[in-house]
Simulated scan of single mutants.
Amino acid sequence: MAQGLIEVERKFIPGPGTEERLLELGGTLEHQVTFRDSYFDTPELSLMRADHWLRQRESSGWEFKCPGAAGVSGLHTEYVELTAEPAIVAKLCVLAQEVAPAKLIVYLQRFRPQDYQRLLEVHSSRENPQGTKDADSSLD
């Protein structure tokens, strides 16, 4: 069975004095890399809200990162990273398909906005008391 590469990334914030301590221990700066990423999304930030990240990295092309483990919600520890432009376009085409809202939701929005707002408030407080879920999108 062929084995692929696995990238492990761990981020940390060095404490005060870390650089000085590394120098004391004989550490040296081997090389430094600086790059610029430009991130792209819809005006509603639909990609970022779904934990998807489309970026163009200076001098290395397009990258698209999305959660890797199906059915996992919340913070992700595994992502799929696409770098081939045809694969990125194919994935975005699947995500950009608009889902029409339910007829009742449209009716309430147009003709009974006060009831629609109350529905959002009740749904939001039941679904997630901390307010981290977008209640409006889950009602569509």
Rank of each mutant, 00 (worst) to 15 (best):
M1D: 04
G4N: 12
E7H: 10
E7F: 04
E9I: 03
E9T: 07
R10G: 08
K11N: 13
F12D: 12
F12S: 15
I13R: 07
T18P: 00
E19R: 03
E20R: 02
R21Q: 09
R21D: 10
R21H: 10
E24V: 12
G26Y: 11
T28G: 08
Q32R: 15
Q32N: 11
Y39R: 13
T42I: 08
M48V: 05
D51S: 03
H52R: 13
G61L: 06
W62C: 03
W62A: 02
F64A: 04
C66Y: 13
P67F: 03
P67V: 02
G68V: 04
A70M: 10
V72C: 05
S73E: 00
H76Q: 05
T77C: 02
A84G: 08
A84T: 07
I88Y: 14
A90R: 14
V94N: 14
L95T: 10
Q97K: 09
E98A: 14
V99H: 06
A100S: 11
V106W: 04
Y107K: 00
Y107V: 00
Q109D: 07
F111A: 00
F111P: 00
D115H: 15
L120C: 13
L120G: 11
H123K: 11
S125R: 14
E127K: 03
N128L: 01
P129N: 07
Q130N: 08
Q130D: 01
Q130P: 05
G131V: 04
K133P: 12
A135K: 01
A135N: 08
D136N: 06
S137Q: 10
S138K: 15
D140I: 05
